[in-house]
Amino acid sequence: MKPIIHLENEIVRLRPIQEEDVEGILNAANDPGIWEHMSVSLLTKEAVQNYVEKAIKERTANQSYTFVIVKSETNEIIGSTSFLDIAENHKRVEIGSTWLAPKYWRTDINTNCKYLLLKYCFEELELNRVQIKTGHENIRSQKAIERLGATKEGILRNHMIRKEGKIRHTVMYSIIKEEWPEIKERFLQKLLQSN
């Protein structure tokens, strides 16, 4: 993975998370509803600082690559998304740990982010597979992933323990390189309709 990746269009910019982003992330992340299904909770400055430090450390080690999501029109941080489970030798990656400020839920922001990420994965990195996973109780996320055109592969039972100690089954989805041209076309139609 390159040390600096910038992905953007007229709606959003995805850029590497950096230490200077703590205040912007804290402002975007201050709704407890964001964290209901997430493995972290970014409601305090200390939590955000730890999140940013961990993300930078993991990027340096090529374990993950966290972006801040910046709304192009206002230049404000409105969320974050990451490349996880980076396996360059197997030409695969996971897109995950995505969160947005609630006022951007059910808008075209997530569609634009996923399009930029998937386009980069399949057209720049020439990957074979991109996976996306979510918790079995996170129906909103499952529906959003399915709207992207990802294939549901199954459920990993008792896969994780959530931050409050509850067991989480993980619903696994993927998009493979052979599917990208058709899925890309669907994205472009959606993005045209939203503009």
Rank of each mutant, 00 (worst) to 15 (best):
80 S>A: 14
136 H>G: 09
149 G>Q: 05
26 L>F: 01
127 L>E: 02
146 E>K: 14
54 K>I: 07
36 E>K: 10
26 L>I: 01
131 Q>R: 05
191 L>R: 14
112 N>H: 14
74 T>S: 07
89 N>Q: 12
184 K>N: 12
99 W>A: 10
77 I>S: 11
1 M>N: 08
188 L>K: 08
97 S>N: 08
117 L>R: 14
173 Y>F: 09
38 M>H: 13
194 S>T: 15
98 T>F: 05
31 D>A: 08
80 S>G: 13
84 L>E: 00
30 N>S: 10
115 Y>W: 03
55 A>P: 01
120 Y>M: 03
185 E>Y: 14
106 R>N: 13
151 T>A: 04
32 P>N: 00
5 I>L: 01
61 A>I: 09
41 S>A: 15
116 L>W: 02
100 L>T: 05
57 K>V: 15
99 W>F: 13
15 R>C: 11
167 I>V: 10
72 S>P: 05
127 L>M: 03
94 E>H: 05
64 S>N: 04
108 D>H: 15
60 T>F: 12
149 G>K: 06
7 L>W: 12
133 K>T: 00
132 I>S: 04
141 S>V: 14
119 K>G: 06
193 Q>W: 09
55 A>R: 01
194 S>F: 10
174 S>L: 00
150 A>T: 05
168 R>Y: 04
6 H>D: 04
80 S>I: 11
133 K>N: 13
30 N>L: 13
37 H>M: 03
33 G>V: 09
130 V>K: 00
140 R>K: 15
39 S>F: 15
30 N>Y: 12
77 I>T: 01
44 T>V: 12
